[in-house]
Nucleic acid binder design. Sequence first.
DNA 1: TGATTTAGGTCAGGATCAGTCCTAGATATC
DNA 2: GATATCTAGGACTGATCCTGACCTAAATCA
Lengths: 317, 317
Amino acid sequence: MIETSSRLLELLTLLQGRREWPGNELAGRLEVSGRTIRRDVDRLRRLGYPVDSLSGPGGGYRLRAGTAMPPLLLDDEEAIAIAVGLRTATRASVTGIEETAVRALLKLEQVLPGHLRRRVRALGSATVALPIAGPTVDPQHLTVLAAACRDLEAVRFGYRRRDGVASRREVEPHSLVNHGRRWYLLAWDRGREDWRTFRLDRLTRPAVTGARFAARPLPARDAAAYVAQSISNAPNRFEAVVILCAGYDSIRERVPSHWGTLEPVDDRCCRFRTGDDDLGWLALRIAMIGVDFEVDEPPELLEQLRTLSARIARAVG
Amino acid sequence: MIETSSRLLELLTLLQGRREWPGNELAGRLEVSGRTIRRDVDRLRRLGYPVDSLSGPGGGYRLRAGTAMPPLLLDDEEAIAIAVGLRTATRASVTGIEETAVRALLKLEQVLPGHLRRRVRALGSATVALPIAGPTVDPQHLTVLAAACRDLEAVRFGYRRRDGVASRREVEPHSLVNHGRRWYLLAWDRGREDWRTFRLDRLTRPAVTGARFAARPLPARDAAAYVAQSISNAPNRFEAVVILCAGYDSIRERVPSHWGTLEPVDDRCCRFRTGDDDLGWLALRIAMIGVDFEVDEPPELLEQLRTLSARIARAVG
DNA sequence: TGATTTAGGTCAGGATCAGTCCTAGATATC
DNA sequence: GATATCTAGGACTGATCCTGACCTAAATCA
């Protein structure tokens, strides 16, 4: 019953687009009798989608929240908004949903029509990135790699190590792991014949080779644990230790957890450890907290702060 | 044929969750014969969803991107990621999709099961907002008001004017308009018997009254135009004019358009006009551009910058 | 070449569907 | 309290569709 199925989907579309619909209006839209609408509503209910109904003048049908997600029927604009929203959500805006956001994005991008995909890409490049917010990850890379992980497809990409040495890699991707503002790819490096973690912001032009591979057993309990260990062995270029002149409780909420660790020293001071590859961003991050502070290390940060202070002083004076 | 419809949806779910499925595996999952799977695939194709197929060993079915969006079938985690992503997308992360993001969010929230709604709300409060990024809009308010606009339902809320005077309003909401980092509600104020625009970050506890109203004709061409005019009459608390010591082309991309207007003065300087209610945020915004600058006005900004400079100087020693 | 996998025609029995007609409740308005 | 406007759903009928079984064709990979 192809017609019934598509009519049910259309009915769901209508119910999702407006709060309330009188039965005969639905009948008119779908070009069936009112009796059929009543039967369709009954079908939706038996499928688990809770459709409320109100008798009397001004009554009608409305789709309520149930216990499971009904299929989402989106128009073009909404699909674009969701794609863009998910792309920003992968940038660690909220702790803990980045990985799921990539999964949802992958599902959406798989079926996103070409013309919408182009529009999303155009909007993506218009994203307002703070100039000193550090390197960002191309969401396109995220979805390519996530798909390769899911489908067990080998990938090739260019990689630039922290010391600047560039190389071409071919890997068997295992999983994507998010940590703070960063994304890491855990993969078996075919050239090195060993497991490696790659920072996505240092990776260029990833492309699937087309070849499938057989999954290998991980050398750790799970991917996140392995990556966490790798990171701790390869810290940031600059690691800062700062004393903040404010009580722990009063600033805890103003310091996002992925910026670093915050620990109380006494009633009026905290020690804040944070790291980054970009000195400018590191300096600003500390200035943004908005309380007095003292820099313990590194010396380069002091230099950077002097520059910033001098610039402001020049402007003021 | 209720069973056929739900099986088609289930088939779409499976096809959306993995790249490729062999026919007999689908048959096993859905507990029907292979012949029925072939017929179902045909049905999906006739409904407009492009299902590719590959013969031979290692072949199978895969869902391709078509010309229209198929219904999105999400699991719980993905629905949460989308809801959170849309909520952040409403915060002007990308220019021009905020209004659509609200519409999509509204559609999703209408059918989001209760337990997921709670999880989204919990995550929302964990959002990492920069401490000095200025007032933010509760996405909950956005969806309540958007629903009221769509359904022509009167709303009551508390409102605090710029001068601090608080009042209780009852309005007939017309539309939500996004401008820069801000949201405005355009509505007919029942108490004042006139059209008003309300800033969402100054609005507390909006709730629908339950009463419906008849749509009134707008006093302007469209809502965005009306709000734009209202805003220009009620500027920010602080309006800054700054000379940036850098060529127009070299910094144009580093200054988001909603921060203010940027115009070239000569080859090496630009004039930057920007406003905000929060001096701290205003000062930091200018410092963040990362080039030398001179402040023309206001005097309060100079004061604020002196404080910032002094704080950094103290830290540097 | 042979094994695997999709494609699709045909058939038969059973199930489902849509429209028509009708009665029963619920609810808001006059 | 009467009335108009809604949804709810039973019964009937003729037409339509669905599924599984069986079979042949074609593509593809090792």
